[in-house]
Design a protein around this nucleic acid. Sequence first.
DNA 1: CTCTCGCATTTCTGTGTCCG
DNA 2: CGGACACAGAAATGCGAGAG
Length: 281
Amino acid sequence: MLRLHTPYGEACSIEGPSWPAGEAWRPGPSESLLRQLQLVYGIGPHTEERLRREGFSDLVALSRHPRFGAEARKVLQALEQGDLAALRQAGARDYELLSYFDSADLAVIDIETAGFRGWPVFLIGLGWQEDGSWRVRQYFARGFEEEKALLYLALDFLQRFSGLVSYNGRAFDEPFVAERLTYHRLERPHFLIHVDLYHEIRRLFREELPDFRLSTVAGHLLSCRRTADIPGERVPELYLRYMAEGEEESIMPVLRHNEADMVDLCRLFDLLTTGAGRSVA
DNA sequence: CTCTCGCATTTCTGTGTCCG
DNA sequence: CGGACACAGAAATGCGAGAG
């Protein structure tokens, strides 16, 4: 555990594991987006199927259609220019816009907090790709008084990334951190894309999984079993005990839990984007 | 051209589920 | 406990074909 100095006091960083990443992709419009006729206003599932039967297999073909051609050309232009706002407007999800980003521009994030609302954040796990490898790092606050320094360190590190990857982070991690930044009068960072794997995995594996908690999903899709992991709801209790008693042993299960979540998240990301990550890290 | 009917799409409303 | 999103079903809107 490394003690780091900031303008707002001290916090800690912990270097995590590193392992080979899945194959990188070439940024640009993706094939699957080009085949999505429903990006054109006025086309739903039924019309898309009918158009396909008539031979309009992608947006390029549809651009010659008498009725939908003009609108299809607009979508094509947005695809070529990488106009993320227009593509979102047309119905593209952030996951589908990933192809416009280099994998090195994305940071995976998972936070641990002392409670659900109004409580401080005390641990921020970050994962990223560097030279073809995944790397994981944690920023840790040993007490509530170190939260601002922790946020400063995480923010400083995140500056080099333009996108976020999380699990339920749109609803939890991002608004939670935003609220803590406002509390500490720190500026909120802006990301061009936020891929929330929770919703994507729910859509893709709706029929196959009993529930969609991260541990369940990782157990099924990554064939990994966590030994002696703590459930998330015990995190606040263990952190409060750690602060009261100062015993490093009480917080170790939480640090390991967050690290395991981070590794699982990075590997799930690899699995969805490149099909890699099935092997045990 | 105008009106109407039937179907497809969009919008609205409600419910369930994850995160510590 | 709050908030974002997916999904499902209902209500509203839009479009095109056919008849007068």
